[in-house]
Amino acid sequence: MSAPVLEIRDLTVTFTTPLGPLAAVRGIDLDVRAGEMLAVVGESGSGKSVSFLAAMGLLPKTATITGSVLLDGRQLVGASSKELRAVRGQLMSMIFQDPLSALNPVHRVGDQIAEMLQAHQKLSDKAAKARSVDLLEIVGIPQSGDRALQYPHEFSGGMRQRVVIAIAIANSPKVLIADEPTTALDVTVQAQILEVIQKVQKQFGTAVVLITHDLGVVARVCERVNVMYAGRVVERAEIGDIFDAPSHPYTRGLLASLPQAGVERLSPIAGFPPNMLRPPAGCAFRARCPHAVAECGETLPTLRQIGASHSACIRAEEVLTSS
């Protein structure tokens, strides 16, 4: 087991809204180990993106962040914008769902990669240009020399996401945060982009945090999984255990709701997620949970070890043995 390169401890993110404080992330602990492919899964509003936007220092001023985010020993919570600028793109990069809005439409893609290189390294224009062509090649863009001179609108969606990845890995960061990187892409193109991300992870030893709602994608490429619900990590396990022996009722519900061959009727999770302007006391999932008991409403459950996994369910043992 390799040492964590990113250590998140008791991270909270609260947004100030006209309707009052909104608790988007409510105390998460999470380690990203060097060179691993880590999944963070959850549905909309679970806090999976916000947690990592907070780590990157990319949230607006309406967000109040507490806790600790250590990247390679550096504290990022409360860091100055100058310190954060030195980290972003150098030690940790992030890519998003929509590659078009991540690129500048009026600059050639080669120049956009070169800009990222020169922001963190002393490189001549010529060397930066040569390196940006190499990077395009690495992410699988054919005729990379010519393509470097083109503009984003001349690329297809899949090719644009490759360009964004090239920019993100230009300075060989230790951590790449990929926030729903294939959600906007067609499934045949998704397969290509996942391959590129896996190649980056294996070839450069970059740790990848894959934020996604797609459990199929997780099953294909990830090693460890964090499941988030209502701003908390509710289960953490190795890939095999998450799918074979989920120990949190939410994880079980999520898996059961997927359409699978031979299943006549789908099993949705009853109800819907809580309003985070007024998060419920105790376990946030209890209103939808078939295993809930009165005790679930008393204290906010924390992750504890259950077999090889960690579950934030006080009834995890019963959940595991129930059919």
Partner: peptide, 27 residues
Amino acid sequence: KALLSAVPVPNPRVERQRSRIMLEGDV
């Protein structure tokens, strides 16, 4: 065939043993 093989199956054992047809390029 390629489309079906590109859809990830939410089962790591099955998913990692499947042979996949990787289509080149975009539509």
